[in-house]
Design a protein around this nucleic acid. Sequence first.
DNA 1: TCTTGACTTAGCGTTAACTCTAAGGTCTAT
DNA 2: ATAGACCTTAGAGTTAACGCTAAGTCAAGA
Lengths: 148, 148
Amino acid sequence: MSYSISQVAEMMGITPYTLRYYDKEGLLPNVKRINGIRVFEDEDFSWLRVLNCLKNTGMPIKKIKKYVDLAKDGDATLKERYELIREQRQNVLDQIDQLNYYMKELDYKDWYYRTAIESGSEAAAQEAAKHCKGCGLELDKAPDESEK
Amino acid sequence: MSYSISQVAEMMGITPYTLRYYDKEGLLPNVKRINGIRVFEDEDFSWLRVLNCLKNTGMPIKKIKKYVDLAKDGDATLKERYELIREQRQNVLDQIDQLNYYMKELDYKDWYYRTAIESGSEAAAQEAAKHCKGCGLELDKAPDESEK
DNA sequence: TCTTGACTTAGCGTTAACTCTAAGGTCTAT
DNA sequence: ATAGACCTTAGAGTTAACGCTAAGTCAAGA
């Protein structure tokens, strides 16, 4: 099967503008054209899935482009591509750690507001927080968010 | 103890510019001034920690500002604030789900490149992927990323 | 044939979140 | 009392990632 840009956009939950933007930035190699019009084939979707993965895990467009360029150079760049993927993998692990850390804070806030609403005032929740050692959050440091 | 804007910036791993920007946007209520100069007290840090949490879990500045404004109105807004926190909590859970989903893709790529590098070519890894059912990834759909 | 609708490119506009510059005030030590 | 290292504001500039408009092309149907 083959698909138009709008169909692909719809399937991926983005706009055709965005897809054209990705194309302009060189993120869509190997997309065929008929009469100048982009025609997406099934093979393109496996790359679109990877693109989506990298994008949604926070990799900037320019770095994805770099990955595309490496892939174009074939087997000679296997190690470089591997390291790029490893780096992103670690990145995602760090992000998950960070989010789990912040979940504790949000869970505390959840408890805090439930307590406050129950007793009708925030002051009461603050009082409860002081006396209840178990309810709160321990303040270990946040996972390092110094990624460039 | 009290701290200058640069000290606080350093402690939070951001620039003084950013802190002033947050202040201008109304995200730093109750920060005292001496001779027009911001002076951060220990009490300010508990809010800075919450600010950091909301920001680093992806809440836009304007929504954080809304939260600040609600807090200013006291007990009358407890329920609204609770719901805002609940929403963000759910948001973070969704983000974690998404990241775990994409981890599977990255793990597959990791395996793929290791295989390719071992055997010296990408073609070999593609071949291995076809024959090895267990190594790959099952393509269930990604967790819904349609958050506005 | 002529309209409809989906596609094309070029390029300007938008938004969020900073980031920096310019011009100036204040405190401390020499 | 002057240099240096802080701080202040207003406001302009930057970056990423789009979003949109204008003007034009092309294929199919009434």
